[in-house]
Design a protein around this nucleic acid. Structure first.
Lengths: 337, 337
DNA sequence: GCAGCCTATGTTACCCGTGCCATTTCTAAC
DNA sequence: GTTAGAAATGGCACGGGTAACATAGGCTGC
């Protein structure tokens, strides 16, 4: 029958304090697990919280301390579903552990204008830090301006200044994939790369290139997709027309699906005629036909590591998990001529 | 050289007011396009805003309004990567349009305890509404308690009370898939269902069952997977051993990958020996071997519709898009005996 | 018995945009 | 010239959690 009960308003800490017969400060301390609260008092407070259905309100803290205990996560809407999910889960888990919540901003396309908008949106929300899981290489001045005051970590991307970058060793992934094909007896390895804007695509390509160079092989021109299976299909159609192609390193599992389909349609069998190695090890990689030989990466861990870096809680520098080659049936020795 | 400039802090309206030689109230009015502001004053204010790089701070308004303008989104960490991404994007887009931000809570497993924890976490964050994209049928009293004060919408799930449910017509999806197989000449259709806890799995199974019943066929027992390709593989191994199986309706594309692999390993070809229809139309469905005949659903739209429902901004009840059958190569007429 | 310290709790001020009301200046109408 | 009203602007309080400081007991050690 109190006023607070009658009105539609949410109860405040003051209401709880009144009900429990303590001060608001004590309520605050209780809810934040501050050490100096008597067990009996705590119990009374928690009972009052329960009864009044009190819900914490973060706005005042944001107002006075400037900290929201919220991290922003920028994601690309399409493509790379699997890796994105894993990164998201990793970010959220690590953030949650540290008492932070995660606010998302998805961008429809990889485009600096949308990127700016997302960053601005998160910035307006007062996030304490930003994890960018969209590895855009070109960075505008405006983006720099927005993130100047907010700690920012880019998962596997590149920023010109200020922001830190968490690198998974994509270079090594490219090298491993290529080396496996060479070890299987192939004399040349072709490559379907991701978009050149993505630093992980670049690194994988560099790993491929350098591995070939180290083996004394001139790398053929790389073909470029956009991570979608459809783009893999298009590049695969081209590769299917080149008779000497016997081994292809594809920059993602999803594109590899497209490449394999194109090859099959042109009568080139995998792995009998052409061997394929890709990167990601998505769940479906083991269940398609043929099961994909691929380089696995731990995206969950990357996401968690990004948060650790942001919050300065990382235990050590060894945050990035090493890639590992999973050999399945999409690779074989080349047909002897 | 003013204090505000020296400190790392963001400038406030008061700083702008000082710089422009007006009161904070006038700055507020100017920025909100209030009518009663002199043109010359407005110009001075805007100049000061520009110079000080003032950026609006929403926290005080949140404080006064008691609303956080944040929605919570509960997601399952594993499985159904594609649909989850699409739902997320839809939710975030619709929320963003309405001026809301989206805070995520992922749960590792489909489990009521984790669910409660997630809801509690979002509740503690003071979200204005919750979208549950984890369609758990069993709902605990505690969950009801937590969400009593927060508008909640479950995408494709079921809640006992209070919370609203946004249904895609999964029933129809199951019916369409089954009917297509019957139309192709099959006399019997087997089914690999999703977990019974998921209402969408139940509905799809019901659609399958009723379609068979309507055709005067006794439905065989349904096999149950957990949405993962691996679970599809296990059920597929069983079905491969039953000679009379010529047509299978699989409740998700990802499980269908597993089923096909199991059939292939037992020497049963798709679609020559066994036809497969699944649901989702993930991007990879068109690029595997054989390309999947599947029922497409618009998850993005579901996510957006959920937010509309939550915010009461929905234009009409026709929020859920109808499923549509995409015929590819995993279905064919049964081998004539 | 008192200094010294720790524990438990209360009091006050602050964060900053905005609603409400007060005040000033100017114009219009009689 | 006086009054009514509009336009432009300022002053003040409010919202709710929390840092910082203040206060009141209780305990230890000599």
């Amino acid at each position: 029958m109190t006023e607070a009960t009658m009105r539609g308003k949410q109860p405040s800490m003051a209401d709880v304090a009144r009900a429990a017969g303590v001060s608001a400060q004590t309520v605050s301390r209780t809810l934040r697990d501050s050490p100096n609260v008597n067990a009996e008092t705590r119990r009374r407070v928690l009972t009052a919280v329960e009864q009044l259905r009190y819900r914490y309100n973060g706005a005042p803290r944001l107002l006075s301390s400037g900290r929201s205990f919220t991290l922003g996560l920028v994601l690309l809407q399409s493509g790379g579903y699997y890796s994105r999910s894993a990164v998201t889960a990793g970010v959220e888990a690590a953030a949650g552990q540290a008492g932070y919540s995660v606010s998302i901003a998805t961008i429809a396309e990889l485009d600096t204008a949308m990127m700016e908008k997302s960053l601005l949106k998160l910035s307006d929300q007062g996030v304490d830090g930003i994890v960018i899981a969209v590895p855009l290489i070109s960075v505008t001045q405006r983006m720099e301006d927005i993130t100047r005051d907010i700690p920012t970590v880019t998962v596997d991307g590149s920023r010109t200044t200020g922001a830190r970058v968490l690198g998974i060793d994509q270079h090594e992934a490219g090298r491993m994939a290529t080396q496996h094909l060479l070890d299987s007896g192939h004399r040349q390895v072709w490559h379907v790369a991701g978009p050149d804007e993505w630093i992980e695509a670049r690194q994988r390509r560099q790993g491929w290139q350098e591995c070939l160079t180290a083996a004394g092989i001139d790398a053929p021109p790389a073909l470029e997709g956009d991570w979608s299976p459809e783009s893999g299909y298009r590049q695969g159609q081209i590769l299917a027309m080149i008779p000497e192609v016997t081994a292809i390193f594809v920059a993602s599992d999803e594109m590899a699906f497209g490449v394999i389909r194109a090859l099959r349609e042109r009568g080139r069998s995998v792995p009998a005629d052409v061997s394929i190695v890709s990167v990601d090890d998505i769940e479906l990689a083991a269940y398609c036909h043929p099961p994909l030989t691929t380089v696995r990466q731990d995206f969950y861990r990357s996401g968690a590591a990004a948060v650790a870096l942001l919050l300065g809680t990382e235990d050590a520098g060894e945050s990035g998990a090493q890639p590992s080659l999973i050999v399945r049936e999409s690779t074989a020795a080349p047909r002897s001529r």
